[in-house]
Design a protein around this nucleic acid. Sequence first.
DNA 1: TTTCGTTATGTTTGCTCGGGAATAACGACC
DNA 2: GGTCGTTATTCCCGAGCAAACATAACGAAA
Lengths: 119, 119
Amino acid sequence: MKDLLPDPATFRINGRLWIEGPADRFLGIGRLELLQRIQQLGSISKAAQAMNMSYKRAWELVSSMNAQAREPLVSTQTGGQRGGGAFLTAAGVRAVVDFEALQLRFQAFVDAETARLHD
Amino acid sequence: MKDLLPDPATFRINGRLWIEGPADRFLGIGRLELLQRIQQLGSISKAAQAMNMSYKRAWELVSSMNAQAREPLVSTQTGGQRGGGAFLTAAGVRAVVDFEALQLRFQAFVDAETARLHD
DNA sequence: TTTCGTTATGTTTGCTCGGGAATAACGACC
DNA sequence: GGTCGTTATTCCCGAGCAAACATAACGAAA
């Protein structure tokens, strides 16, 4: 394989992994990061901002996840002392933990295949 | 994980895998299929047509692959008995075989993770 | 009751990527 | 030399999709 490439060291295996349902994507790397940021920052708008994503898009992703899961991953509150906010439910926390683990196994696979590519 | 989902059986892990270089993508599932079709049909335009892809795009992909590989994966001929054509070089055949194998290992990974998702 | 930052949602704007048309060159074959 | 189907390449346009914008509702706190 590597003998196909001019400078094999500069080439890598890369990829994307996600969970998909009958209608739509459910969870991927972008949605995971969004959940993590919401957990960290307590708001969808701050999370979006931190990811350089429009609030609308972030909200749509949250909405999509909440709609597909058995119970919402993110709970929101409008109004209140700081104008409102958002936090992960127990289900949301579990989703983050589980998908992080999956992502880690995938990364191991990708790294192994990259190593195989190099020799 | 599955307890997050309303009907776990309808959810799957899915993903994409590719080889990327410093500048651009080198090989992915779409480019693989294109190479396979060229091998099978002997022409870029026929391959593109079979994939419902514009000739222009197909040509660009071939050009990108040829430019990044140490030696071209696809060799072309303009003019001639049937107006010309394209075929895989030895390097091209090797690229197909090797990436097919990689894709198979990836599919196994995805299937295993989907199974894990279901229990 | 005003302020404030957020959620929630519809509308418009803008931009990028690919599609499609147009054109040239090519070379075997009749 | 005319025909044909292909490679090769440029240019323009439109669809689709995300960003940006606009607005309403909300509720705690001052």
